[in-house]
Simulated assay, not measured.
Amino acid sequence: MKQPLAYVHPDAKVADNVVIEPFVSIDHDVEIGEGTRIGSSVTILPGTRIGKNCNIFPGAVIGAIPQDLKFRGEYTTVEIGDNNTIREMVTINRGTASKGKTVLGNNNLIMAYVHIAHDCFLGNNIILGNNTNMAGEVIVDDWAIISGMTGIHQFCRIGSHVMIGGGSLVRKDVPPFIKAGREPLSYVGINSIGLRRRQYNNEKIREIQDIYRYIYQKGLNTSQAAEIIEAEMPASTERDEILLFVKDSKRGIIRGYYPD
Protein backbone atom coordinates (compact mmCIF):
# COMPACT_ATOMS: atom_id res chain seq x y z
CA MET A 1 0.00 0.00 0.00
CA LYS A 2 1.69 3.18 -1.21
CA GLN A 3 0.53 6.65 -0.18
CA PRO A 4 0.29 9.16 -3.06
CA LEU A 5 2.71 11.53 -1.29
CA ALA A 6 5.47 8.89 -1.23
CA TYR A 7 8.10 8.47 -3.98
CA VAL A 8 9.05 4.97 -5.11
CA HIS A 9 11.49 4.66 -8.00
CA PRO A 10 10.00 2.51 -10.77
CA ASP A 11 13.02 0.18 -10.65
CA ALA A 12 12.68 -0.54 -6.91
CA LYS A 13 11.49 -4.06 -6.07
CA VAL A 14 8.84 -3.67 -3.39
CA ALA A 15 6.55 -6.53 -2.36
CA ASP A 16 2.84 -5.93 -2.91
CA ASN A 17 1.84 -5.81 0.76
CA VAL A 18 4.54 -3.39 1.94
CA VAL A 19 3.02 -0.35 3.68
CA ILE A 20 4.61 2.93 2.57
CA GLU A 21 3.52 6.03 4.45
CA PRO A 22 3.56 9.66 3.19
CA PHE A 23 6.81 11.47 2.36
CA VAL A 24 8.83 8.25 2.05
CA SER A 25 11.55 8.22 -0.62
CA ILE A 26 12.63 4.85 -2.05
CA ASP A 27 15.38 5.05 -4.68
CA HIS A 28 16.39 2.66 -7.46
CA ASP A 29 18.25 -0.58 -6.66
CA VAL A 30 16.21 -1.16 -3.49
CA GLU A 31 14.48 -4.40 -2.50
CA ILE A 32 11.85 -4.63 0.27
CA GLY A 33 10.23 -7.90 1.38
CA GLU A 34 6.67 -8.83 2.28
CA GLY A 35 4.93 -7.39 5.30
CA THR A 36 7.40 -4.57 5.92
CA ARG A 37 6.14 -1.15 7.00
CA ILE A 38 8.00 2.03 6.01
CA GLY A 39 7.09 5.00 8.22
CA SER A 40 6.65 8.59 7.18
CA SER A 41 9.74 10.51 5.95
CA VAL A 42 11.98 7.44 5.74
CA THR A 43 14.67 7.63 3.05
CA ILE A 44 15.91 4.38 1.49
CA LEU A 45 18.84 4.80 -0.89
CA PRO A 46 20.39 2.60 -3.61
CA GLY A 47 21.97 -0.68 -2.60
CA THR A 48 19.52 -1.38 0.23
CA ARG A 49 17.99 -4.82 0.77
CA ILE A 50 15.29 -5.14 3.45
CA GLY A 51 13.67 -8.44 4.36
CA LYS A 52 10.19 -9.43 5.49
CA ASN A 53 8.06 -8.04 8.33
CA CYS A 54 10.35 -5.18 9.30
CA ASN A 55 8.96 -2.04 10.90
CA ILE A 56 10.89 1.12 10.04
CA PHE A 57 9.83 4.22 11.95
CA PRO A 58 9.73 7.83 10.73
CA GLY A 59 12.89 9.66 9.77
CA ALA A 60 15.24 6.68 9.35
CA VAL A 61 17.84 6.89 6.57
CA ILE A 62 19.06 3.56 5.21
CA GLY A 63 21.72 3.02 2.55
CA ALA A 64 23.45 6.41 2.56
CA ILE A 65 27.05 6.40 1.38
CA PRO A 66 29.67 5.79 4.09
CA GLN A 67 31.08 8.61 6.17
CA ASP A 68 34.54 7.38 5.24
CA LEU A 69 37.03 9.48 3.29
CA LYS A 70 38.44 6.31 1.69
CA PHE A 71 35.12 5.68 -0.05
CA ARG A 72 35.48 6.20 -3.81
CA GLY A 73 31.96 5.50 -4.98
CA GLU A 74 32.36 1.72 -5.25
CA TYR A 75 29.20 -0.37 -5.43
CA THR A 76 28.24 -1.57 -1.96
CA THR A 77 25.08 -2.56 -0.10
CA VAL A 78 23.12 -2.59 3.14
CA GLU A 79 21.51 -5.99 3.82
CA ILE A 80 18.79 -6.14 6.48
CA GLY A 81 17.07 -9.41 7.41
CA ASP A 82 13.56 -10.19 8.64
CA ASN A 83 11.48 -9.04 11.62
CA ASN A 84 13.62 -6.04 12.53
CA THR A 85 12.31 -2.94 14.29
CA ILE A 86 14.23 0.19 13.31
CA ARG A 87 13.08 3.20 15.30
CA GLU A 88 13.02 6.93 14.60
CA MET A 89 16.02 8.67 12.96
CA VAL A 90 18.23 5.57 12.76
CA THR A 91 20.99 5.79 10.13
CA ILE A 92 22.52 2.69 8.52
CA ASN A 93 25.28 3.33 5.97
CA ARG A 94 26.41 1.21 3.03
CA GLY A 95 29.66 -0.71 3.06
CA THR A 96 32.99 0.25 1.51
CA ALA A 97 35.56 -1.67 -0.52
CA SER A 98 36.76 -3.19 2.78
CA LYS A 99 33.80 -5.56 3.28
CA GLY A 100 31.41 -4.49 0.54
CA LYS A 101 28.32 -4.45 2.71
CA THR A 102 26.77 -3.53 6.03
CA VAL A 103 24.67 -6.37 7.49
CA LEU A 104 21.86 -6.50 10.05
CA GLY A 105 20.43 -9.97 10.76
CA ASN A 106 16.98 -10.94 12.01
CA ASN A 107 14.75 -10.05 14.99
CA ASN A 108 16.73 -7.01 16.10
CA LEU A 109 15.50 -3.91 17.93
CA ILE A 110 17.39 -0.79 16.85
CA MET A 111 16.20 2.11 19.01
CA ALA A 112 15.97 5.79 18.08
CA TYR A 113 18.98 7.78 16.82
CA VAL A 114 21.26 4.76 16.51
CA HIS A 115 24.03 5.01 13.89
CA ILE A 116 25.35 1.86 12.23
CA ALA A 117 28.39 2.74 10.13
CA HIS A 118 29.91 1.17 7.03
CA ASP A 119 30.84 -2.52 6.97
CA CYS A 120 29.34 -3.32 10.38
CA PHE A 121 28.07 -6.88 10.84
CA LEU A 122 25.26 -7.38 13.36
CA GLY A 123 23.73 -10.77 14.07
CA ASN A 124 20.30 -11.72 15.39
CA ASN A 125 18.16 -10.85 18.44
CA ILE A 126 20.26 -7.79 19.29
CA ILE A 127 19.04 -4.70 21.14
CA LEU A 128 20.79 -1.37 20.52
CA GLY A 129 19.63 1.33 22.96
CA ASN A 130 18.82 4.91 22.03
CA ASN A 131 21.72 6.98 20.67
CA THR A 132 24.14 4.08 20.42
CA ASN A 133 26.73 4.98 17.80
CA MET A 134 29.11 2.57 16.16
CA ALA A 135 32.03 3.35 13.88
CA GLY A 136 33.01 1.29 10.85
CA GLU A 137 33.61 -2.47 10.77
CA VAL A 138 32.15 -3.23 14.18
CA ILE A 139 30.87 -6.78 14.78
CA VAL A 140 28.02 -7.48 17.20
CA ASP A 141 27.15 -11.12 17.84
CA ASP A 142 23.73 -12.63 18.57
CA TRP A 143 21.71 -11.68 21.66
CA ALA A 144 23.93 -8.75 22.66
CA ILE A 145 22.25 -5.86 24.48
CA ILE A 146 23.96 -2.48 24.22
CA SER A 147 22.39 0.17 26.42
CA GLY A 148 21.74 3.73 25.34
CA MET A 149 24.35 6.44 24.68
CA THR A 150 27.10 3.88 24.02
CA GLY A 151 29.91 4.72 21.60
CA ILE A 152 31.76 1.88 19.87
CA HIS A 153 35.23 2.30 18.34
CA GLN A 154 35.91 1.04 14.83
CA PHE A 155 36.95 -2.61 14.43
CA CYS A 156 35.62 -3.61 17.86
CA ARG A 157 33.73 -6.85 18.36
CA ILE A 158 31.02 -7.46 20.94
CA GLY A 159 30.37 -11.10 21.78
CA SER A 160 27.11 -13.01 22.08
CA HIS A 161 24.85 -12.58 25.13
CA VAL A 162 26.79 -9.50 26.28
CA MET A 163 25.14 -6.75 28.32
CA ILE A 164 26.82 -3.32 28.13
CA GLY A 165 25.79 -0.56 30.55
CA GLY A 166 24.48 2.79 29.36
CA GLY A 167 26.83 5.59 28.42
CA SER A 168 29.76 3.24 27.83
CA LEU A 169 32.73 3.81 25.56
CA VAL A 170 33.77 0.56 23.87
CA ARG A 171 37.42 0.73 22.80
CA LYS A 172 38.31 -2.97 23.03
CA ASP A 173 36.57 -6.25 22.29
CA VAL A 174 33.92 -7.46 24.75
CA PRO A 175 33.95 -11.27 25.10
CA PRO A 176 30.73 -13.32 25.16
CA PHE A 177 28.33 -13.95 28.06
CA ILE A 178 29.49 -11.06 30.26
CA LYS A 179 28.30 -7.75 31.66
CA ALA A 180 30.48 -4.72 30.99
CA GLY A 181 30.41 -1.32 32.66
CA ARG A 182 32.40 1.46 34.36
CA GLU A 183 35.05 3.69 32.76
CA PRO A 184 37.24 2.45 31.25
CA LEU A 185 34.86 -0.30 30.18
CA SER A 186 35.52 -3.38 32.30
CA TYR A 187 34.29 -6.89 33.02
CA VAL A 188 31.80 -6.68 35.89
CA GLY A 189 30.41 -10.22 35.94
CA ILE A 190 28.45 -12.78 33.96
CA ASN A 191 25.20 -11.82 32.26
CA SER A 192 23.42 -14.46 34.34
CA ILE A 193 19.96 -12.88 34.10
CA GLY A 194 20.13 -12.74 30.32
CA LEU A 195 21.47 -16.29 30.13
CA ARG A 196 18.65 -17.63 32.32
CA ARG A 197 16.11 -15.90 30.09
CA ARG A 198 17.64 -17.85 27.19
CA GLN A 199 17.34 -21.18 29.00
CA TYR A 200 20.94 -21.55 30.23
CA ASN A 201 20.85 -23.66 33.41
CA ASN A 202 22.77 -22.97 36.61
CA GLU A 203 25.44 -25.56 35.83
CA LYS A 204 26.23 -23.93 32.49
CA ILE A 205 26.30 -20.46 34.05
CA ARG A 206 28.73 -21.69 36.73
CA GLU A 207 30.94 -23.15 34.01
CA ILE A 208 31.08 -19.76 32.27
CA GLN A 209 31.83 -18.04 35.59
CA ASP A 210 34.72 -20.45 36.23
CA ILE A 211 36.19 -19.68 32.81
CA TYR A 212 36.12 -15.95 33.44
CA ARG A 213 37.70 -16.34 36.87
CA TYR A 214 40.82 -17.52 35.07
CA ILE A 215 40.66 -14.67 32.58
CA TYR A 216 39.90 -11.84 34.98
CA GLN A 217 40.39 -12.79 38.63
CA LYS A 218 43.54 -14.89 39.02
CA GLY A 219 46.21 -12.40 38.01
CA LEU A 220 46.97 -14.14 34.70
CA ASN A 221 47.51 -12.50 31.37
CA THR A 222 45.11 -13.46 28.59
CA SER A 223 47.44 -16.00 26.95
CA GLN A 224 48.18 -17.73 30.25
CA ALA A 225 44.50 -17.90 31.13
CA ALA A 226 43.60 -19.33 27.72
CA GLU A 227 46.23 -22.06 28.03
CA ILE A 228 44.98 -23.14 31.47
CA ILE A 229 41.33 -23.08 30.42
CA GLU A 230 42.05 -25.22 27.36
CA ALA A 231 44.17 -27.67 29.35
CA GLU A 232 42.10 -28.01 32.52
CA MET A 233 38.46 -27.34 31.66
CA PRO A 234 36.34 -29.82 29.69
CA ALA A 235 35.48 -28.85 26.14
CA SER A 236 32.05 -27.33 25.61
CA THR A 237 30.37 -25.01 23.14
CA GLU A 238 30.66 -22.08 25.55
CA ARG A 239 34.27 -22.77 26.53
CA ASP A 240 35.33 -23.01 22.91
CA GLU A 241 33.39 -19.87 21.93
CA ILE A 242 35.15 -17.86 24.66
CA LEU A 243 38.61 -19.23 23.80
CA LEU A 244 38.16 -18.59 20.08
CA PHE A 245 36.92 -15.05 20.75
CA VAL A 246 39.91 -14.26 22.96
CA LYS A 247 42.44 -15.77 20.56
CA ASP A 248 40.95 -13.99 17.52
CA SER A 249 40.67 -10.59 19.20
CA LYS A 250 42.50 -7.95 17.15
CA ARG A 251 42.10 -5.07 19.60
CA GLY A 252 42.44 -7.09 22.79
CA ILE A 253 39.63 -7.71 25.26
CA ILE A 254 38.38 -5.28 27.89
CA ARG A 255 40.09 -5.20 31.28
CA GLY A 256 38.91 -6.74 34.51
CA TYR A 257 37.29 -4.67 37.21
CA TYR A 258 39.47 -3.88 40.19
CA PRO A 259 37.90 -1.80 42.98
CA ASP A 260 39.56 1.53 43.71
Rank of each mutant, 00 (worst) to 15 (best):
F23H: 07
N202G: 03
D260P: 13
G252A: 01
A235Q: 10
V24K: 01
G123T: 11
D248T: 14
Y216A: 05
V78D: 01
I211M: 10
G100S: 08
V30Y: 07
Y75I: 15
D210H: 14
T96V: 10
I126W: 03
D141R: 09
I65E: 15
E34R: 11
K101N: 11
I80W: 14
D240S: 12
A226W: 08
R198Y: 10
D119V: 04
I190R: 09
E74G: 03
E227Y: 10
F57C: 02
I56L: 06
L243E: 14
R37V: 12
V138I: 08
H118L: 03
D210C: 11
I126E: 04
Y75W: 11
N17G: 09
V30C: 02
T91F: 02
K218E: 08
E238Y: 06
T91P: 04
I152V: 05
N106I: 03
K52P: 11
M163K: 12
R197L: 09
A117D: 01
V18W: 05
S192D: 08
K101E: 14
S236Q: 01
L220M: 12
I229E: 02
N108W: 07
R72N: 03
A12Y: 04
F121K: 13
Y187S: 11
M89V: 14
S25A: 07
G59E: 02
M1G: 13
H28N: 15
V30T: 01
G181A: 15
G148N: 11
R198C: 13
S168P: 00
G51P: 05
R255C: 15
W143P: 04
E230P: 07
M111Q: 09
I253D: 01
L122D: 02
R94K: 07
A97R: 15
G95K: 08
Q199K: 15
E21R: 12
V30L: 04
I242N: 02
D260A: 13
V170C: 03
